[in-house]
Design a protein around this nucleic acid. Structure first.
Lengths: 161, 161
DNA sequence: CAAAATATATCAGAAACTTAATTAAGCAAC
DNA sequence: GTTGCTTAATTAAGTTTCTGATATATTTTG
């Protein structure tokens, strides 16, 4: 089983799973399905995307994405635009209203985490802060991006989603 | 905006959101829906639970849970048992086959995380390891302060593995 | 330029979820 | 002990969301 002298991967996995469950079950304010929220989040965070890319990312069929986007467009949460570089393709982007929903959910998560962090000691908070750059780099590695520099400063993208 | 001298809650939220998305969209080995997998995970991690508790946790209706459990029972992944402390209630528990599915998914997550961790420096891995206890404590704090409606019975099982 | 591949759309049917109504068991007070 | 209120689960019917198969338009390839 995979482990390192410094780090128990099993423990890391377990903690992350717990946070995952904690993050998923929050408000279902508007009547939006889980997949729908995930698409909005993807678009808000990564900019306009093609339907096929969304389908691959969400692991549903392209047909499901077409129908979902049609519905979201009717509700004013996303827009369809022709892709200038490919006449067959369509680019989907979030509207301000769609982004507001994503931001609202993030605010609730932040408020929750802040509440929990407030009940930790300063040393515990510092330990978490010290791990953030490394955790962020794991995410980057997963997405295929190449950050080049190891830790460096954690600052940078604070409006990314 | 919630923040601490030692820790940026915004950054923590962002990193955890990314891991959440990374964890959710994994294998779809057997034809099980996301909610179904989440229920299996809950049962495997927290022991037998009532249908109402499952419904509250997954944020779906009680009716949806009844139907899902019926289907899972037919497939041999969970079992229904009468609750000895309450004649109205039913306790649902995972079978070995159900637990195997959860374990399989966890193994895949661990393998993924191990692969990513292997590409970090030792210092980065150590930083993550140092933060695990504090992160685990946040999860515990969250689970301690959950429900608005207190449980009816004194003998309920509410412990964490 | 024809043939193959790609990107989206459409439609019928299956799956998952919701609302509403039903049955059964506990709880409280008289 | 029985009357009435509440809670737990099921059932039934209807709605939303997804899949599978097929169609159409636009690259890309040979």
């Amino acid at each position: 089983m995979p482990d390192f002298p410094e780090l128990s991967v099993a423990e890391l996995t377990h903690v992350l799973e717990d946070f995952t469950r904690m993050h998923i079950r929050l408000p279902a304010e508007r009547r939006l399905s889980f997949t729908t929220l995930s698409v909005l989040h993807t678009l808000a965070g990564g900019g306009p995307k093609r339907l096929t890319d969304l389908a691959a990312g969400e692991q549903v069929t392209q047909s499901a994405i077409t129908q979902m986007v049609t519905k979201l467009e009717r509700e004013g949460l996303v827009e369809r635009r022709p892709d200038p570089s490919d006449g067959r393709a369509v680019l989907v982007r979030v509207t301000a209203a769609g982004a507001a929903i994503v931001d609202g959910r993030r605010s609730e998560r932040m408020a929750r985490l802040a509440d929990l962090a407030a009940r930790l000691g300063p040393g515990e908070r510092a330990a978490i802060a010290a791990a953030l750059p490394a955790l962020a780099r794991m995410v980057e590695l997963h997405e295929g991006a190449v950050p080049a520099d190891p830790p460096s400063t954690a600052g940078g993208n604070d409006d990314e989603p």
